[in-house]
Design a protein around this nucleic acid. Structure first.
Length: 910
DNA sequence: GCCCAGACTTAGTAGAATGGAC
DNA sequence: GTCCATTCTACTAAGTCTGGGC
């Protein structure tokens, strides 16, 4: 189903779909009369969407309340399958005064879990709108001269209204709607020259293996070369398997289940509850005193394929040495994927494959020169057969394999930190393969080498036994740095990036860090009013750098954009706020900005948003000549500068805190739509809707699954099948009582969405199924007769039955065409009406579910739940609405957030 | 002040596990 | 019990941010 421009459900307080004129009364002044936080309108600016109805009615509510976070945002799925959606983030346009997005009502004090009331942002005071003089100041040109691309000043073009000197704007490059020709870049007192930051050149990274140890290690720790005769820790750190090791069969046995429960409870008691320990909450430069672990588990060595499985070159089967066969197999396993069809991926793979072939050539005297002539199909088919074999294994076989695997991995599953057992995250060394870079990554398809102990540096306690690698070799190095949390480190060969082994997400280190992150976001609540007020003022600053910073901050706050560090040439061309370029932003007067760029993971961010007039003006200024495609929009801003500024406003504040803050805040607001008296399912639906709103805000996308179209169409057919049944019920009713059409005219209406094509297809499906069922029944009956030693029925019996069925379906068709259906046996008007009502309910439910599926098809809910939404909100909500937490958090999430479960009660607020 | 490495968080995806319909 | 769709988990790529070196 293709989606064209569609209005997103409003999630955030500041977005709305109402025209700007309706939303005009920006929250300049707090509405002191506002009632409790729960009743507060989602303040600000735009409030109109589904969640923001409060702003709609009288309009006045739009200006107050809690618009702190910006919420909802429409998004476009990657690749343009979904058209851009409009979004407003402007507060007010009734005047030029920039009520700013940030003015808001003072939230009620937030009782913290520890019982101490946390002061919330104070904004009871009125915010004074900019005076006329401010405005006139603003209108004054910032710069008299325009800069040329080479940095030389040129006479500024001017024009525009009010006789102000404004530069002539170049024609919009990307959009016909953009009318920058009228633009008048105000002159900056200091610097109107675009500095045009250049893309960072490819980092001259050291190749993997060149470093002996991390600089930090060099500095802070004693680095010791691993010795071959180092003490071997033969005793597994883990006492047993993780819970994962338990089989389904075991779980089903009540006794085992009980034992398991007792064990879990005991383990639970054993667990380190760091959130109860005051000292554990400190900022802690020193992370550990003693640290033991078994490092990483290397994958098993390559096992050559059966001799009969060979790739072909130009039709000739090649006998490859294991080294080159393994690489061929990496590609062979992928030939049906998009990667293998991607030109860059193929190019990089083939370059590396050829290099390996140089060293390990095929036995046959064949020179592999073209990837097109390579036929990996025999390999692919072999892998498929292996998969099938694995799938076809018995339960016991699968169980035995799993047990063996668990046993082998057991020593690596846990580490000991200061005497406590902590789960390790990614203890398996990454196996070799082909680099699956995302988007247009220039290195995708490159061969990732097999890791050896010589590639890996360990970080471990001084007195801990040095683990022995599970394959021959010696560790690259050993260090004892207790200020970091990683267990092992290596540099991968493709990009020269560092890779680390850390403890799992459920460990105390990660938990503490997570909690601190959310506490910081909550701390921002106290500062956000001031920050918004400041950046709103700075939108008009005469200093170009400040004006750019304010504008970027406006986007980070309002649109939840990422900071946007600079990237190298050897990476995919993706951007964030500070690295936006000229071509990523298009203006559409009077106040719309269209963003279209690739963000993290090459996910497309495509939104049309209404912005504050001053922001619109600023973008026009930042895009003014001589800037051109390829130049930085914010040429005087870097993430470092931005974060330095933020840190000055609140210690520890960085750009990314806004995402956490806005996500959690939005979620909290949206949860207010939970139906208090609804069923658990309805409450969970409200929870998921709030979750979805946050995911949309953060632009968390997923690929629409391959089978979605078909599955969606099938579900649509299921609904039509229900309608078909409803139609038959109606027609029976009319036969029973022709007058009912007049008594209940709504029943006289035909079901929507049913046409002859569907009828034919559906009836033929039904017939097919009925015939199959009859055949199966016949066979079953015969088997039974045979078992009982009786004479089996013959084919004529079956044929007779099939003939009857066909006749029945013929009759059905006739009934449908004549619109006259004989009432079935026992049918009464009352019963039929009841059945129709039930059918209506089923149809409505199915339709809602279908719509929901469509809305969620490209939205990833997990990321925001895992990283951005304070888990205490979920815990509190579950308690408040009496919804079992396990319906909201999977096992791993509960393991990740035990501190939230302990801390939040039903009244907890963000 | 810039550049870069280092350390850590955030992200989408593949494949396994689970669960519901038939 | 099987099939199919959905959910969960593991994996690892791709970000952010800090701080050291020059």
């Amino acid at each position: 189903m293709s989606t064209t421009t569609s209005e997103m459900a409003v999630v955030a307080p500041n977005l709305e779909s109402t025209p700007i004129t309706q939303a005009a009364h920006a929250p300049q002044v707090e509405d002191e009369s506002m009632s409790s936080e729960d009743e507060m309108p989602l303040k600000k600016i735009n409030g109109a969407g589904a969640g923001q109805k409060r702003a709609g009615g009288g309009g006045s509510s739009s200006s107050s309340g809690d618009d702190k976070p910006l919420s909802k945002k429409p998004r476009v799925s990657n690749g343009g399958a979904t058209a851009s959606r409009k979004r407003r983030i402007i507060a007010s346009d009734s005047d030029e005064s920039d009520a700013g997005p940030s003015v808001k009502k003072e939230p009620v004090p937030t009782p913290k879990a520890n019982g101490v009331s946390k002061p919330r942002s104070s904004n009871a005071k009125k915010v004074t709108p900019p005076s006329d003089s401010d405005l006139s100041e603003d209108e004054r040109p910032l710069a008299k001269k325009k800069a040329t691309p080479n940095g030389k000043a040129t006479p500024n073009g001017n024009g525009g209204s009010n006789g102000k000197a404004k530069p002539k704007a170049k024609k919009p490059v990307t959009s016909g709607s953009e009318s920058e020709s009228e633009s008048s870049p105000e002159e900056s007192s200091e610097d109107e020259k675009p500095l045009a930051k250049k893309k960072v050149a490819a980092k001259p990274r050291k190749s993997a293996g060149s470093a002996v140890a991390t600089p930090a290690a060099k500095k802070k720790t004693t680095m010791v070369k691993a010795e071959s005769d180092s003490e071997v820790d033969d005793v597994p750190l883990a006492k047993g398997k993780g819970s994962k090791g338990k089989t389904k069969a075991e779980e089903k046995k009540p006794v085992v289940k009980k034992e398991k429960k007792v064990k879990e409870e005991e383990e639970d008691e054993d667990k380190y509850k760091w959130w109860e320990q005051q000292e554990a909450m400190g900022n802690g430069e020193v992370k550990w005193t003693t640290f033991e672990h078994n490092a990483v588990l290397f994958p098993p060595p390559y096992v050559p394929l059966p001799k009969s499985v060979k790739m072909k070159y130009d039709g000739v089967p090649l006998t490859l040495p294991p080294e080159s066969e393994e690489v061929a197999g990496f590609f062979g396993a992928m030939i049906e994927t998009d990667h293998a069809r991607d030109a860059k991926f193929r190019e990089n793979f083939f370059r590396d494959f050829k290099a390996v072939l140089e060293q390990y050539p095929p036995k046959e005297d064949v020179k592999v020169k073209s990837l097109e002539k390579c036929d990996f199909k025999p390999m692919f088919e072999h892998f498929e057969r292996e998969k099938e074999k694995k799938k076809a294994m018995t339960k016991d076989e699968k169980k035995a394999i799993k047990e063996a695997k668990d046993e082998m991995e057991a020593p690596y599953v846990f580490a000991m930190v200061d005497g406590r057992k902590e789960k390790v995250g990614n203890f398996r060394a990454e196996p070799p393969g082909l680099f699956r870079g995302r988007g247009e990554h220039p290195k995708k398809g490159t061969l990732k080498h097999r890791l050896r102990p010589e590639d890996i540096v360990l970080n471990i306690g001084k007195d801990a036994p040095i683990p022995k690698p599970n394959i021959p070799g010696e560790w690259k190095g050993i260090q004892h740095d207790n200020t970091v949390t990683w267990l092992a480190y290596w540099k991968e060969n493709v990009n020269g990036n560092a890779k680390y082994v850390f403890l799992s997400a459920g460990s105390s280190w990660k938990g503490q860090s997570d909690r601190a992150k959310f506490e910081k976001a909550r701390d921002l609540i106290k500062h956000v009013d001031k920050i918004r007020k400041d950046y709103t003022e700075d939108l008009k600053s005469k200093v170009m750098a400040d004006r750019q910073r304010a504008t970027a901050l406006y986007f980070i706050d309002r649109l939840a954009l990422r900071a946007g560090n600079e990237k190298g040439e050897d990476e995919a061309d993706t951007v964030g706020c500070c690295s936006l370029r000229y071509e990523h932003v298009t203006l559409s007067p009077p106040n719309k900005v269209i963003f279209d760029f690739l963000g993290k993971d090459s996910m497309r961010f495509h939104q049309e948003v209404e912005v504050d007039h001053q922001v619109f003006k600023n973008i026009k200024l930042f895009k003014a000549e001589p800037k051109k495609k390829g130049d930085d929009l914010f040429d005087r801003l870097t993430t470092t500068l931005l974060n330095k500024h933020l840190n000055g406003m609140m210690p520890g504040l960085t750009a990314k805190v806004f995402r956490t803050y806005n996500a959690s805040w939005t979620f909290q607001q949206q949860l207010k739509n939970t139906p208090k008296n609804g069923t658990v399912a309805e409450k969970i639906a409200a929870y998921n809707t709030a979750n979805r709103d946050v995911a949309i805000l953060c632009n968390h996308q997923k690929t629409v699954s391959k089978g979605f179209e078909a599955s969606f169409a099938k579900a649509g057919d299921k609904i039509r099948a229900l309608k078909y049944q409803r139609m038959k019920l109606r027609l029976q009713l009319f036969s029973l009582d022709p007058k009912i059409k007049k008594k209940k005219p709504e029943l006289a209406e035909d079901e929507s969405d049913l046409d002859d094509e569907f009828f034919e297809r559906h009836e033929s499906d039904l017939l097919e199924r009925a015939l199959d069922a009859a055949k199966k029944k016949f066979e079953k009956e015969n088997m039974k007769l045979e078992e009982e030693g009786q004479k089996k029925k013959g084919k004529p019996d079956l044929d007779e039955r099939l003939k009857e069925i066909k006749a029945e379906f013929k009759e059905l068709k006739k009934e449908r065409k004549s619109k006259k259906v004989e009432p079935r046996k026992g049918a009464t008007e009352e019963k039929l009406l009841e059945q129709i009502a039930k059918m209506d309910e089923r149809i409505a439910t199915a339709r809602v579910q279908l719509e929901d599926r469509d809305k969620l098809k490209d939205v990833a809910l997990g990321t925001s739940k895992i990283n951005y939404i304070d888990p205490r909100l979920t815990v509190a909500w579950a308690k408040k609405y009496d919804v079992p937490l396990e319906k909201l958090f999977s096992k791993t999430l509960r393991e990740k957030f035990p501190w939230a479960e302990a801390e939040a009660d039903a009244k907890w607020v963000f």
